[in-house]
């Protein structure tokens, strides 16, 4: 029996589904539509999810890649009671959100960064989020937000 954990919930995966694309499984089967599709070829990062706290592009993953792993999507970032993660709050306060299409991927990417490096410099943040595209913000306020969250989280 194959299983995986998505946002702390256990899912049994049928063997016939192992070759299915993860992003379509999340969006269409589970209704987790916070994961966005911007390019579908692994370039833009809109579809970023965390797999065992590693930021990966779900449009390049198949269900077989997440067996026995723990996946977190944007819907799994806030606390169960709905209160926002400090990183989410920082995105709001710093004006890091415009159209919001890149936001889920950016938040998850930043979360993975802060997990590895709780006090990154601006240059380190810039280098990390280089993987994800945003057409609206010029990244400036996204970097502000990650920096502010890092401060809030280590306080």
């Amino acid at each position: 029996m194959m299983q995986t954990t998505i946002n702390n919930k256990l899912y049994i995966i049928d063997e016939t589904l192992l070759e299915q694309s993860l992003v379509y499984y999340l969006r269409e089967e589970l209704g987790l539509t916070g994961t966005k599709i911007g390019c579908d070829i692994g370039v833009c990062g809109s579809c970023t999810v965390l797999v065992d706290m590693q930021a990966l592009r779900s449009c390049k993953l198949k269900l077989k890649d997440i067996i026995d792993k723990s996946v977190i999507t944007i819907e799994g970032v806030a606390a169960e009671d709905g209160s926002l993660h400090p990183l989410q709050q920082a995105f709001i306060d710093c004006g890091a959100i415009q159209c919001g299409f890149c936001t889920p991927g950016m938040v998850l990417f930043a979360l993975a960064l802060l997990h590895k490096n709780p006090a990154p410099s601006r240059a380190e943040i810039r280098a990390a989020i280089n993987a994800n595209l945003c057409r609206c913000t010029g990244y400036q306020q996204i970097i502000d937000a990650v920096q502010q969250a890092a401060k809030a989280m280590t306080r």
Partner: peptide
């Protein structure tokens, strides 16, 4: 602080 009426929905993936 920035104000956006749609920020909460966008940052939680519920938008």
């Amino acid at each position: 602080k920035a104000f956006r009426n749609d920020a909460w929905a966008k940052v939680t993936g519920t938008a």
